[in-house]
Design a protein around this nucleic acid. Structure first.
Lengths: 219, 219
DNA sequence: CACACCAAGTTGTTGAACAATCCTTGCGGG
DNA sequence: CCCGCAAGGATTGTTCAACAACTTGGTGTG
């Protein structure tokens, strides 16, 4: 077994792949991440891995406790509430610049269409993915990289909240109709109606998530 | 020269102190940060420093270019525009929950009072600090740690934008009156008026900053 | 002047080391 | 039987020295 030369820019790649793995549920929320084990699995040194950890910790995707290492974040009810506060501010703020002429509008339309198709096909995970695509696109109305990346961060945290549940994807399903209402309001240039629909969406989605937490006795 | 035992949790401290040093202008925007030099000055190893760098990079306070190391961020016009987009969304979103009964209201009052006092005393830097305190407090209306820390991040970036200028503090001065208008509107429970005043504030502040950039031929 | 080349310096990464701290386990006392 | 506690092993946080890849600035050549 010959040792390969080290990848000269391994850290960003590792951070990215680890992020994907976490949001894909390959590591469960709350799961402990052993430095040695993870470093080995990514084929990097412990030091390089620690740099990647720092990036993910800043995004609140992992939790660092001094002398006790790293574990995948496991959002509690208080976090869920806060995540929705952030979502409300970012999404409603972005929607204020919404328009049927904006490129993001087409992406939202596509997300709704693909979600419908996935629903027909009974592909629940895809419905969930498209739902999040819809809201990612919505936030792009802001034309602001900072707003978009702040949203992507809370979206990843949301994903972790869902992963704590038994059937994560089930919770997305009831809301696809809501997205269509929002879209129609934007199409009609009625941003007030779109905002109202989005506000309802967020309130109901938060309620459902929190009550599921409560039902399962979480946090 | 006896070598001390390494600080068992040096990284967070270094990240914090480096952040302070950068926002205080001890390292100029765009300045190159040599790993060896900075590590030495903080009394930590290169590896530990790199972890701290990663945290600050995630906050956009420093810029990492592969194989060329780290430099203090130097916001360009496009960044300033984006920072204000983010500020508009966060601050207006938080202000929507504003109330004279909220603890943040008292902090805003204090910031205005201290700013007035600093202005009397001709202490320009303090006027700037209190101006930012005012807006930090405003954002706390959101009751959301995530919103607050997202704001603190763009506030630090703002600081870097100001540091690119000759007389950073001068730009804060014209706006203290605006803060008083916002405060009065909240006191009168007129959130619409407060939002309008804040919108004006942000637009004018952005305009002044951008025109100063332009006058100095920056970016 | 343009261009290839060279040398010095820096970065990105590794692997091994070590003390401090945590965690488990087994043991003894109540 | 349960609780506290001590010993041991495992893990973390950090350091150091090494090395190749890369950048940078200068030099010489055509």
């Amino acid at each position: 077994m010959t040792t390969l030369p080290p990848d000269r820019t391994a850290m960003p790649k590792v951070a990215h792949e680890l992020r994907e793995a976490i949001t894909a549920g390959q590591y469960a929320p709350g799961e402990r991440l052993s430095e040695i084990a993870v470093a080995e699995s990514f084929g990097v040194s412990r030091n390089t891995l620690r740099e990647s950890f720092q990036a993910l910790a800043e995004q609140r995707l992992i939790t660092r406790i001094p002398n006790r290492g790293v574990s995948v974040a496991s959002p509690e009810m208080a976090d869920v509430i806060d995540i929705y506060r952030m979502r409300r501010i970012l999404e409603l703020g972005a929607l204020a610049s919404g328009s049927r002429l904006h490129p993001a509008y087409a992406d939202m339309t596509a997300a709704v269409k693909d979600a419908r198709a996935a629903e027909e096909a009974g592909d629940r995970p895809a419905v969930g993915t498209e739902n999040m695509h819809f809201h990612s696109a919505l936030v792009r109305f802001s034309d602001s990289p900072r707003v978009v990346s702040a949203f992507e961060n809370v979206a990843a945290e949301m994903r972790l909240a869902f992963l704590r549940l038994n059937d994560p994807e089930r919770l997305h399903q009831p809301f696809m109709g809501r997205n269509e209402v929002i879209l129609a309001a934007i199409e009609a240039d009625d941003l007030a109606a779109a905002s109202a629909a989005l506000t309802d969406y967020l309130a109901d989605s938060e309620r459902l998530l929190l009550s599921t937490y409560s039902r399962l006795g979480l946090s």
